[in-house]
């Protein structure tokens, strides 16, 4: 069974837990899932196994603390330590898929905006000019920032799971809002500050849309290959 099937199964069974057990289990689930570079399939197999165990125990009147102990963080750390690492190939496929999707998305946005400006507001031309070298630098920076962002989100999830304090929804919201703002500003700053260099290239704007569709198709094929 692949990771996706296991996750679906987990989602279907989790609601059978009672409130206290569900809260305990979901913390474990978030914490273990956010451990980076562990085999996704093995992780999901373990999570489903723990869920089945807890469900069975629940039907016998036991609760999560009886089964997994009163220190879930230490217990999860122990489990994470024993989980096998993700193999190189799925990780690279995932990185490639996200990269193609991101570049495809940017290309689509540029194409649509360019054409809308021209056809609806008579601004600009049907040709887009750009500096390939500059564009390349910007895209590489974007992808690096994107992966740093993903890492940060995982880190944040992990460290906040068993923090033990009553989490204030407002504080969490403001933290998330600030984080996303910094992330978006970085995108804009990089676009503005990267110097224009190298030769200029001109292509019909509509090609950008075609280009993005090709990138999406590649990303889709990579995703299928990964499953």
């Amino acid at each position: 069974m692949n990771a996706k099937t296991l996750i679906d199964l987990n989602n279907k069974k989790r609601p059978l837990l009672n409130e206290a057990n569900l809260a305990y289990y979901e913390n474990m689930l978030i914490y273990i899932r956010s451990a980076s570079n562990k085999s996704e399939e093995q992780t999901e197999e373990l999570l489903l196994e723990l869920l089945e165990h807890l469900l069975q125990a629940q039907s016998e009147g036991k609760n999560a603390i009886d089964i997994f102990g009163s220190n879930p963080k230490a217990y999860c750390d122990e489990l994470i330590q024993e989980l096998p690492k993700e193999k190189q190939k799925p990780r690279l496929l995932f990185v490639a898929q996200i990269s193609f999707q991101t570049i495809g998305f940017l290309s689509l946005i540029y194409g649509v905006i360019g054409l809308t400006k021209y056809y609806f507001f008579q601004i600009g031309t049907v040709v887009t000019s750009f500096y390939p070298a500059t564009t390349f630098v910007i895209l590489v920076c974007y992808l690096i920032i994107l992966f740093l962002f993903i890492k940060t989100v995982f880190w944040w999830l992990k460290q906040s799971t068993f923090a033990g304090r009553q989490t204030n929804k407002w504080i969490e919201f403001i933290q998330a809002w600030l984080g996303v703002s910094v992330f978006i500003s970085l995108f804009v700053v990089i676009m503005r500050l990267t110097p224009k260099f190298g030769p200029v290239m001109q292509i019909p704007t509509v090609l950008l849309i075609g280009f993005s569709l090709i990138l999406y198709l590649i990303a889709y094929l990579i995703k299928r290959k990964g499953q």
Partner: peptide, 9 residues
């Protein structure tokens, strides 16, 4: 009961 899982892994 939970202590078997790290060992199984």
């Amino acid at each position: 009961e939970g202590s078997i899982y790290p060992i199984l892994l």
